[in-house]
Amino acid sequence: MNAFVARHRLIVLAYLGMLVLLLVTSYFSPGFLSEANLRSSVVLAAFVGIVALGQTFVIIGGGIDLSVPWVLNCAAILMAILCGGQDLPLLWVGPLVLAAGALVGLINGIGVAIFGVPAIIMTLAANVILQGLIVIYTGGLPTPRAPEMIRFLSVGRLGPIPVIGILWFVLAIAASFLLSKTAFGRYLYAVGSSATVAEFSGVPTARTTILTYVLSGFTAALAGMLLTGYSGQAYLGMGDPYLFTSVAAVAIGGASILGGSGHYVGTIAGALVLTILAGLLPALGLSTGALMVVYGVVILVTVAIGSEAFASLLRLVLPMRAGRIGSRQP
């Protein structure tokens, strides 16, 4: 148990932070812990969590995916238009949209891993291109309503449990399995901690990197479809909040933004923290603007806490524990 806490110190911290936040929120907003409210929090967190799933893999591998907002948005609009409000077309539209998301990821991954384009540039460019394409495609017109089947997936429930919560749980198990129990997971951590060492060790570095982007495109597209179900229709700009929240969830969840460490178990806590925070601030009478400011500060502080510089600062402040944190044995 102790070894687990030591190894996953940051993930444990993320869950502790979430609990504290939950208590504080319920103090200021007594209705917060009601069943209905918890349920809606889980639903909101699930959207962040699903987008952040792919982002977690990309960031562990040492990259970043800035194309998630418009992959999400394109998926949403494509689905809405192709289904035209009907359930039946979803059977082929769903897989098609997911495949399209994965394809964008494939292109991102090939650009980064084979052609050596920096991840920031590659995915930022993909984001802008997709934005342009979708504006051309829709001509800015509103889309049909979301099919009922998608609505069921995102707002329906089985007994007291939201369907999307179950979906998220299944995805979380799959992601954790990939990271902890498979060769691909091991390769991913190796590529993220040192691409050179991984290459010298015979790790299929390019393939591993490309797969992370494919996964990210896939989860962004999935989230886009589900979000359409949640809001009833697809609209331009619906993906914009998810760039920041997906990266923030990963960072709050204890992953190094430079790659090589982290876990989806942490990202789940990150997604929940962001959602609870979004509930707390209105309860404190703060505006949406203030919410954004606090969001920004929270991610800065959490990333700083996880950093090497913060560790050495701690060493200065707490000389008793000098050298414990990350220092080198002579």
Binding site: Y189, A190, S193, S194, T196, V197, A198, F200, G260, S261
Partner: peptide, 8 residues
């Protein structure tokens, strides 16, 4: 630089 993942 080539042999070890130092943080692993």
């Amino acid at each position: 630089g080539q042999g070890l993942m130092l943080s692993k």
